[in-house]
Design a protein around this nucleic acid. Structure first.
Lengths: 328, 328
DNA sequence: TTGTACGCGTTATCAT
DNA sequence: ATGATAACGCGTACAA
């Protein structure tokens, strides 16, 4: 590879001058600038980014830790990242899959040794405990998306607000007996919060018999059914649970949406393809990623605290399909 | 970040000793090794890979240029890459999407400035001309997969052999009038070669009226039909064209597979889901990628020419579905 | 066996 | 405006 010294020799100037011309920081005389640029082009010289990073302590590299993403989700996210970062002369290093606290520490440590300017935590299924005794002090700044990890900055999907919207939608379609299946993770608390808030706004009493929480949707809805409390609609965390619920209800000879309506807090292609197609809220992943990238920019540039005006809370967008019916 | 000097001070040794302990290259006394390791762990020290790379001229980073991949393909490939490279302490930098010679040069140049040890060219739709006046001299070694770019090493999908296999399969099922739609790129020549070879092996005459070449499958099959040459089967490059062909044939009131059989040279999930499901050959992408990674290892380690025993030519695996029927 | 000193390619701080 | 030179963090001949 040609180095800056090659350019120096060809242009008869010092390293400093070449560096100045390329970075554009300081003023240089027109003539010399031209000479340098000619030499640069002639040699097809490109600064060694490793050396640059070593000197400036800025690597223009961001680490991306992903987990629990399907191939197509992974591809979609990485494609977006690539196109967004490319425009900024940055690139990313991927670390996919985390299966424990040690694994998490390893991956983060690896990315840190590569001196990433920041690390993005994307995807699902991160366990809170993995972060408990994690020494974040000698790591690059961490940023999360769609994760409710306290102490880590980032953008979030507002499950509480979206759950409230879901309930309001059901109410406006005549449903008054709404059951809810909580997400088994921390999102469950948020869902419950939104659910109760919707109730309060309508001055309706809260009945804890109407809420169930279990990682398996079939089990959760069974619990509900066995309580013999009537309900006309049920709010579930995602399409996967929605489908389990619909299947289980079918075993009890309960039709969706004729007898019970189902609404998904986070719907996607899975719910779109199912029969009946599932009504629910879509996570604005693209917008969220864009916001996260702006946040990233702030973190890298601002270095310190320069908080700017980035949207950090997102709510779902209602997609009306077939799993909710209007009560007469 | 803690540096090697911090370790030196804490362990009362020189940089050289610490470096030796961590790399394991040279011998060091048990005692001092222990002292150093203790200091390393206590400080949670991790060598700065940038500085390492600068000193050793090995970055343990590979550039990955992708093009023409769907999100799920991209995700699948990158997941595999990640898990394979992670085990070797390596990582990759992505550059997705190429739309011209300048764009190609840009991306490659970028990856080069990041001092990748090698660059992988993955995906489809690379134009030969983009590589014509590409100065490959000051670039890391290039490796391709699934691309027929002369002068670039890599692994390939043998379209000629697979086309021949496809014809043999059709013959063995009673088809003697086989038409072929060539891929519009360079793969077309290979398909034709395999097609003719299969003909020769059966001492059948070659009729150029039986071959058509067009990027659009509908157009290609229409050309064929308008020649009024009878055929009972048609070999097409991929599922996309297969589907276009089947649709077009339907417009002529020709049923698949009852009246005409269709076989795809490179079938995938698209063909699996279509009705009728498309019979064809599956590209062994995973195996190919594994082979490519072994090749990568040779290139990086061998540095020079150390050619090892890596499979470089792959053929499709026949997947029998519904689009081919047996003639009585 | 261990330490010294130099080089990797670049930026940045001083002089000039 | 430009040039010497010291960092940046690490590996490694060479010397001790």
């Amino acid at each position: 590879m040609t180095t800056i010294l090659d350019v120096c020799r060809l242009a008869n100037v010092s390293k400093a001058t070449v560096s100045r011309v390329l970075s554009g920081n300081r003023k240089v005389k027109e003539d010399t600038r031209d000479v340098v640029m000619r030499a640069v082009e002639q040699l097809n010289y490109r600064p060694n980014q490793l050396a640059q990073s070593l000197a400036t302590k800025v690597s223009n590299t961001v680490g991306v830790l992903t987990n629990g993403l399907t191939d197509s989700q992974l591809g979609q996210v990485l494609r977006q990242l690539d196109s967004a970062l490319w425009g900024q002369g940055r690139s990313f290093i991927l670390a996919n899959g985390v299966d424990g606290a040690a694994s998490l520490a390893d991956k983060l440590s690896f990315l840190a040794s590569r001196h990433c300017d920041a690390i993005l935590l994307l995807g699902k299924n991160y366990d809170h405990r993995w972060f408990d005794d994690l020494d974040v002090s000698d790591l690059p700044p961490l940023l999360t998306m769609n994760q409710t990890l306290d102490e880590i900055d980032g953008v979030q999907f507002d499950q509480a607000l979206t759950a409230e919207l879901a309930c309001n939608y059901l109410y406006s379609h005549g449903h008054t007996q709404i059951a809810v299946l909580l997400e088994s993770g921390s999102g469950g608390e948020q869902m419950l919060q939104g659910y109760r808030h919707a109730l309060e706004n309508r001055s309706l009493p809260f009945n804890r018999q109407m809420v169930a929480q279990h990682a398996d949707g079939a089990t959760a809805i069974s619990m509900l059914i066995n309580r013999y409390i009537p309900f006309t609609a049920v709010l579930v965390p995602d399409d996967h649970q929605a489908i389990e619920v619909i299947r289980t209800l079918a075993q009890y000879n309960i039709q969706v949406p004729q007898e019970v309506s189902v609404i998904s807090l986070m719907t996607g292609i899975e719910g779109e393809r199912y029969t009946p197609a599932i009504t629910g809220f879509e996570v604005p992943e693209e917008k969220m990623l864009q916001s996260l990238l702006r946040l990233l920019d702030d973190v890298i540039k601002g270095g310190g605290e320069g908080g700017s005006d980035v949207t950090r809370e997102f709510m779902g967008k209602l997609i009306i399909r077939q799993s909710v019916r209007t009560m007469e």
